[in-house]
Design a protein around this nucleic acid. Structure first.
Lengths: 338, 338
DNA sequence: AGCAACAGTGTTAACGCTCACATGGAGGAA
DNA sequence: TTCCTCCATGTGAGCGTTAACACTGTTGCT
């Protein structure tokens, strides 16, 4: 910067003003400085800038398994929104779900002086661990449940599940079995709630849900166990599955047992992965607007940062933004066999 | 830091030494300082540290569509390796494939003073744009093709495709049709090369490959067009599809046409997504060790950073590391109909 | 004319840390 | 003893930037 100033025949402060687009600089001076910057290939040192402004312009993201469809989509949405807002993103993804891990991750981000953090924390234990932590701050939880004391953005899992199950009941099924995802996940919990509520509203009995782990493998295994129960005489005509990947496993299990979908059994998934439409049969499922979730969570975080900077007293109102889910009816759901 | 020093009754420099684990500090002093740090909740300011050491400890990642299976997995591998090496990760993902976009992304990372960068750059134009850029440096390209002048880590796409096609030929198919991914992608190109080579080696004719875009939708559309050609009398008994998602679309198209897999037509995919095993029929595909790719690319990058720091003369040898692909034979491939 | 307001620029002091060097004392070899 | 070495610690400078303020000259108002 000193070199640029010398070449342009001005003070370093004027260079700073030009770089930061301050208004009160003569046009001609601006040009001269710009030329000098160009010539020397100068670009400002963000570190020094951060040191003096006390703003790093970096936001942290704590994610858990970004190879899953939902988190990957959400991350992508967050990334885009962050970039548009002029923030950099520092990411740390958790290997396991131990509170230790999330504490270490938070430590790591605090150490990097992030200005705020979005945590894709789909499990209650993680959310609680985060809420108990001193830093980083501000912090927004994606898919964090209620009552954590953290601001939260989430898809309306309950409504999505409710819609899916009501759809099946309206087709004439007397009840709907449920294969849930990893029971430690909040999403899984919420979908169970929605499923149960829809059954209750219809006065239908609620069979015990089966617990999976989101993987196609677990869907397959649990699908087989439902097939076995059907063979023993239990009436299983509709299955609401916690996500599309498990639903794929379920379809497989049904197919192997010679059962037809939706002729004998209807299947509804959750997520609306791109391939859902092209499975055989195409999968009825629930669409979640993850991009929107990412966008909203960043907006919320930026809001928090803003109010903090204006010196808000104590912890801010823990806002909760809910993004609606949307049922996508396709070929895997139909009326029950007579 | 000054506060800590005062509380511990030492100089700021001694605090610095304790924080950085320097050897020559008396044990008792270390304890005293540690206690003071604890008490004040101090943690060092990474910005100030970076300013003076000229090391940000941040690596950049340029990715393109991290919602796709491969990039997401690779990113995850890179993330883990970076954290183990004590580096932070700053991510920018590209919306479109324009060279402008990648230039902006690079600019963005340079501006943040990353120490090095991994680019998941699956298209030739992107690799070329990157290679032409002044910064960031050092730079490692994942899946970047040959001849770009950049160090590259990639899966052996040619070998993977070759294995898949040879597998089909050995089952007795007289030729293998190919639905390729987005033709702009280097992976797509390489798989075409492997496919063609295997056909040539077997003296089999090579029908013109069909160009998709990796999506299930395109797989479905192209699958239908192959079905149509079959109806016109062309012998289509085996299809090697550029990725598993498109293969799902192809399976759908075949199923709709009443064709059986593998009875009438064999299908082989690429990627080995988790659900491949649980499709109906389970999908024969090619496994890519993305985690390994991520790990290797980071190792390569750290190597570059190391040699640069030791003042290597000019650009380093552009190393190229190739991770083998592995065929996973499952239910969707079998001998051709008589 | 006299004064205020303001545009355009420069000067100085931080920001919080590490590096290079200085200091002082303990221990060992000549 | 004397000198040299090594450990433990302190001192001062400087990393590259921006904030705050000071300074000049011009404009506009009374």
């Amino acid at each position: 910067m000193a070199d640029v100033a010398r070449l342009a025949g001005v003070s370093h402060q004027t260079v700073s003003r030009v770089v930061n687009g301050h208004p009160n600089v003569r046009e001609e001076t601006v040009l001269r400085v710009r030329r000098a910057i160009e010539e020397l290939g100068y670009h400002r040192n963000s570190t020094a800038r951060a040191l003096v402004t006390r703003r790093t312009n970096v936001l942290g993201v704590i994610a858990f398994d970004t190879t899953l469809f939902g988190p990957a989509q959400t991350l992508s949405g967050i990334e885009r929104a962050a970039r548009e807002a002029g923030y950099f993103l520092s990411m740390v993804s958790l290997d396991d779900v131990s509170p230790d891990g999330i504490v270490a991750a938070a430590e790591y981000l605090v150490q990097q002086s992030v200005e705020g953090c979005v945590a894709i924390a789909p499990q209650r234990s993680l959310v609680d661990a985060l809420a108990a932590l001193p830093g980083p701050h501000p912090l927004v939880a994606v898919e964090g449940g209620e009552g954590s004391g953290l601001p939260v953005v989430c898809v309306d899992q309950v409504q999505g599940a409710h819609d899916a199950v009501r759809h099946l009941l309206e087709l004439g099924h007397t009840t709907v079995h449920h294969i849930e995802g990893d029971p430690l996940w909040l999403e899984s919990e919420a979908r169970v709630v929605g499923w149960r509520r829809a059954l209750e509203e219809a006065g239908a009995p609620a069979p015990e849900p089966l617990q999976g782990d989101w993987s196609p493998r677990s869907g397959y295994a649990l699908g087989r166990s439902l097939v076995a129960r059907r063979a023993e005489g239990e009436r299983v005509t509709a299955i609401f599955v916690g996500n599309d990947q498990m639903a794929i496993g379920v379809l497989r299990a049904l197919h192997e047992a010679g059962l037809r979908v939706p002729g004998d059994v209807s299947v509804v998934g959750f997520d609306d992965v791109p391939e859902a439409e092209f499975l055989t049969p195409s999968l009825t499922t629930v669409f979640q607007d993850f991009a929107q979730v990412g966008k909203e969570s960043l907006a919320l975080l930026l809001g928090e940062i803003g109010t903090e900077r204006n010196g808000s007293p104590g912890p801010s109102a823990t806002e909760r933004r809910v993004v609606p889910a949307r049922l996508r009816v396709r070929g895997s759901s139909g009326p029950p066999p007579p």
